[in-house]
C-alpha cells in the first residue's frame, strides 16, 4: 500500500515539476500575475458596486444580493476563462507559426506546441477564477444572514470591510511585486473602492 502511495506521489511530483517548467519556459507566469490582479480587482469592484448600489437603493434583501452577485461571478468567470483562452491561444499560435516559417518545419507535435496550450489554459484559469474568488468573499456575510440573527446593516458593514480588505490585499500584492511601499499601493486600491462608493451615493441622491 505504501509502495503504491509512494509511486503515486512520485508521479504527481514529476508532473508538478514538468508543469512548473512548462509555465516558466512559456513566460506565462508574469502574464498570469498581471491577469490575476487586474481581474480580481474587476471582480472586487463589481461586487462592491452591486452591494453598495443595493444598499443606497434601499434593497436590503440578502437573497437578491446573493443572486445578483453569483450571476455576476459566473459571468465574470466564464468571460475571463474563454476570453483569455482564445486570446492567449491566438497570440501563441501566431508566434508558433512565425517560428515554423523560420524553421520550415511543422511544430504541431512538439513540446513547444504542447507548452503553448498549457500556458493558454493556465492564463485562462487565472483570469477566470480570480474575479470569481474576489467577488465571492464579500458575498459570504449575506449567507450568514440565513443562519445567524444578524442585522442586515451589520452584514452590509462586514461585506464592505471584506471588500476593502481584498482591495487592500491586491494593492499590497502589487506593492510587493514592484518592491515599493505596500501600504501606499494598498491604500490606493482601497481608495478606488471608496471613490466607487462616493460616485454611487451621488448617483442615488
Amino acid at each position: 500500500m505504501s509502495a503504491f502511495l509512494e509511486n503515486v506521489l512520485d508521479k504527481l511530483s514529476t508532473q508538478y515539476t514538468k508543469l512548473r517548467q512548462d509555465l516558466e519556459l512559456s513566460g506565462v507566469i508574469k502574464i498570469a500575475r498581471r491577469y490575476f490582479v487586474m481581474n480580481a480587482f474587476d471582480g472586487a469592484l463589481t461586487i462592491f458596486g452591486i452591494i453598495m448600489g443595493s444598499y443606497f437603493s434601499g434593497l436590503k434583501n440578502p437573497t437578491l444580493i446573493i443572486g445578483a452577485g453569483i450571476g455576476a461571478c459566473l459571468a465574470m468567470g466564464i468571460s475571463g476563462f474563454f476570453g483569455t483562452f482564445m486570446t492567449e491561444r491566438a497570440e501563441r499560435m501566431r508566434h508558433l507559426k512565425k517560428i515554423e516559417d523560420a524553421m520550415l518545419t511543422d511544430l504541431g507535435e512538439t513540446e513547444l506546441s504542447e507548452r503553448r496550450f498549457v500556458a493558454s489554459v493556465f492564463a485562462a484559469l487565472v483570469d477566470g477564477l480570480s474575479p470569481m474568488l474576489a467577488a465571492l468573499g464579500p458575498l459570504t456575510p449575506f449567507y450568514l444572514s440565513f443562519i445567524l440573527p444578524i442585522s442586515i446593516d451589520l452584514i452590509f458593514t462586514i461585506a464592505v470591510a471584506i471588500n476593502m480588505l481584498i482591495l487592500f490585499g491586491l494593492g499590497a500584492f502589487l506593492g510587493r511585486i514592484s518592491r515599493e511601499n505596500i501600504f501606499k499601493y494598498g491604500l490606493l486600491m482601497t481608495g478606488t473602492g471608496l471613490l466607487t462608493a462616493v460616485l454611487l451615493l451621488f448617483l442615488q441622491t
Binding site: L25, S26, L112
Partner: peptide, 11 residues
C-alpha cells in the same frame, strides 16, 4: 541543429 529560442540551451 536549428532550434527556436525556447527552450534555452541549458534546458
Amino acid at each position: 541543429v536549428l532550434k527556436p529560442h525556447e527552450p534555452p540551451i541549458q534546458e
